[in-house]
Design a binder for these strands. Structure first.
Lengths: 350, 350
DNA sequence: GTGATTTCCGTTTACGTTAACGGAAATTTA
DNA sequence: TAAATTTCCGTTAACGTAAACGGAAATCAC
């Protein structure tokens, strides 16, 4: 900066002002300084910058509440990992939880988050309309928003900083290939879904289901996909669902679930000693990984949800502290295929 | 630091001395300071540390020379990516190349690297004995060494900082499963290997081959694996090798290669319009990815070589600048299964 | 043309740590 | 016991940037 200042014939303070645009600088000197910066290739020293920056930032995270071993724990884990980095950059993270099954709790979480006067928001916007209301509070304050897991369809690029999601449709398509490509004779498969009562089905189910059916239509026109509902917390009832279905349809040997609860099916297979069926499931939950190792789940499709969460936080931190935005707004994670042979090397750590 | 100093009744300079142990401190005060640090939870500010640290470090990298699109370019890419981070921490990287096919060039690269008086070494130790000689020069200078890709068997944990490798045996085992599990009737498969003349076959070939054969022995005792040699730079000759082999053995429908040159086989398949064979190949080279998309390669096994390289450099940087070592010395990358449905989401970027 | 604003920019301090310097205390040597 | 070492530790000047402060120049109102 000293060199730049000398060559441009201004003070080092002015150089700072144009390099990071705060404060007022006349257009003439700004251009002169910019030219010198470019000429001698000045790059700001990020460590000095952070050191001298007295400001502290806070980010609020709005995600569903979860129990141990559930899908949202992966997201939470990714956020916690990013928090370590964030703290070194004077960024504090506060998490607000809501229930996936109660829109009012979502509204409440949003209200509380807004009251915390955050400098940035990371949100899993399960309820779209309520999200819109939240945005109408947040947007006027020019607070950057990052979406994770899903994104409201009304979100225009200028209204959010980034979206970290998963290629759901494609992963459903892939699931079909993994499940059926080895058995050209199969004419029927079944998917099990979590009961959501009156609530609209969630995005990940719909998109994956859609991708799966697209594969069938394209590659296996003779094959149909049944669908049955199971219950996350009612073990006995699920047993009956499975028993009944397979009693009626003993010829069905291919099972998929677009939820993260594949282990529920695997447990039933274990219980009944089922060995002639293949099962494709989603998400890197501990119990799914166990079932994969024990051979009940044939393939697990993982989308590094934890990593997406980490990167989502990082995007906010970069925006706030380093003032640089992601080049692409919509970032999709990879689709990882796991089986019993590579699972041991698939670690959540970085 | 000021708080710690005050509470411990010493100067801030002394706190620095015990926190980062340089300089001499009496055992008594060291313990006192350490206790206070622990008590009030003092964490050093890395930015201030780097800013005030005037020292600059240099790391030498010793890897094979490569042409565009070859395996070692992945490693190189990972190193270049890490370099960006490294530069911000005052660490400079110099690369020394050798020929995979000439041990003398390896020796020369080692000599030149040693002469550069580096603060750290990252090496792909293809020639084990020559590596031993290099170590006898480097070790007395207490220069930390990180291995990548392979590790000499004589390397004792205390003699190196870390090793970043790939689970070769397991990936060979997995390759066999991907290739054969869908076809229980297969009794024969073939692997193609790069000609290395008089040289000993390289580690990755040997280990993957071994893993593959272990799968056969265990799961498919009736199935044998043929092996044929191909030539990286002799397109016409390879055509003949393939033509001849499959003329003689038309029933063989499963092909694997443990090298990174799967695309050579794919090209032949394309040329001859072969559609009834499956091909499993390794490594995320551009040409392999093309062949995967075009359907010639059925499955590609990728081990994020680029990422391993990035982490290897990072390990050295962390050791030098932050004075913290990796908790585990031997770090293996994940085994990623790619097919035409998930390849588009498998990005080398981070 | 005077006074009041506004715009622009130079000066200065602080951020938390490192490391050179040198003085005091402890230890050894003669 | 005095001198010579050695050990230990306090002081201080960087490191590169951000931002508060305030003064000078330019612009405006009347």
């Amino acid at each position: 900066m000293e060199d730049v200042a000398r060559l441009a014939g201004v003070s080092i303070g002015t150089v700072g002002r144009v390099a990071h645009n705060h404060g007022e600088v006349s257009e003439k000197t700004r251009r002169k300084v910019l030219r010198i910066i470019d000429e001698i290739g000045y790059k700001p020293n990020i460590h000095a910058s952070i050191l001298s920056q007295k400001r502290h930032y806070s980010i609020v995270v709005i995600i569903p509440y979860f129990q141990k071993g559930e899908y949202w724990e992966l997201i939470y884990g990714g956020i916690m990992k990013a928090e370590q980095e964030a703290q070194k950059l004077n960024v504090q993270i506060k998490v607000f939880y809501y229930s996936q099954f109660e829109i009012e709790s979502f509204r409440a979480a949003c209200r509380n988050a807004a009251e915390a006067k955050p400098n940035g928001v990371l949100i899993a916007p399960i309820y779209k309309e309520a999200t819109r209301d939240f945005l109408s509070v947040i947007s006027p304050l020019a607070i950057p928003v990052v979406y994770i897991d899903s994104k409201p369809e009304f979100a225009a690029p200028k209204d959010y900083l980034a979206y970290f999601g998963m290629p759901l449709y494609e992963s459903g398509y892939l699931a079909a290939d993994l499940l059926l490509s080895a058995d050209p004779a199969a004419t029927r498969a079944v998917s099990f879904t979590i009961d959501r009562g009156e609530l609209t089905p969630n995005d990940s189910f719909v998109s994956r289901d859609c991708g799966f059916r697209a594969y069938l239509a394209e590659m296996r026109p003779g094959c149909v996909l049944d669908n049955r509902v199971i219950y996350p917390y009612d073990f006995m009832r699920n047993i009956k669902v499975f028993d009944d279905y397979f009693a009626e349809n003993p010829e069905v040997r291919h099972i998929v679930t677009f939820t993260s609860r594949g282990h529920l099916i695997a447990d039933w297979m274990e219980l009944r000693g089922v060995k002639d069926k293949t099962l494709v499931a989603f998400d890197m939950l501990g119990r799914n990984m166990e079932s994969l190792k024990s051979g009940m789940i044939t393939n697990l499709i993982a989308e590094r949800t934890d990593k997406a969460a980490t990167r989502a936080v990082k995007a906010l931190v970069d925006h706030l502290v380093l003032r640089q935005d992601p080049p692409i707004k919509d970032i999709y994670s990879s689709i990882d295929i796991l089986n019993r042979y590579n699972i041991d090397y698939y670690l959540p750590v970085e």
